[in-house]
Amino acid sequence: MNQQLLVFFKAFLGSFKDLLPIILVIAFFQFVVLQQTMPNIGEIFVGLVLVVLGLTFFIYGLEMSLFPIGESMAQAFAKKGSIWWLLTFAFCLGFGTTVAEPSLIAVAKEAANVAATGGIIEATDASQASYANGLRYTVAFSVGLAIVIGVLRILRAWPIQYLILGGYVLVVIMTIFAPQWIIGIAYDSGGVTTSTITVPLVTALGVGLASSIKGRNPMIDGFGLIAFASLTPMIFVMIYGMVLS
């Protein structure tokens, strides 16, 4: 028991070290640049302890659950040899985790606001909600598709750079034709889709697949799933903008 406590304490210290830069940055700007005192220091202290504790638990649980689940499922699918089930799983994982992602919901709402202010859609709650939902489902679909393409790439050992560069070219072409107001939102939507639970799971899935297929290098073939998931939403959100105009 004592040994476990020691391990936990070490992890706690590690998490504190991860958080130290934020504390220093905020303290410096608060005291030196803005020259103000720290408001409700007690609350902030409690918050910081919670953040450090939370990070410690998260990393501790990560190695016990998300990593092994992702890898064991990848191995099971590879053994089963059914590409269709694997791709269905890949799509569901991408779509399912994105559609409920809180930061995506927030961005979609904000984007609906922009569209209503800009006169793209009617400024009623109903049309804003339908616009925001459309955006959410567009992004979720494109992330599902991204994981499918990424998994296919691992299976077929396609070199990642051609696919990603091809994606970039598409983004550039779409940017020329897409309406101006959607571009900022489209570019941002690539970044907000990948959540804290999805990333470890998807990474473990990719690495697990690459290590259970003969001739694949987990470093070269295993990584890259997240990259697709941040690229396709840009393309599809711009398409969504073009369809609406």
Partner: peptide, 11 residues
């Protein structure tokens, strides 16, 4: 492990 992940994320 999953419980730790959830608890960690919540905290």
């Amino acid at each position: 492990g999953f419980f730790y992940v959830l608890l960690g994320l919540a905290l």
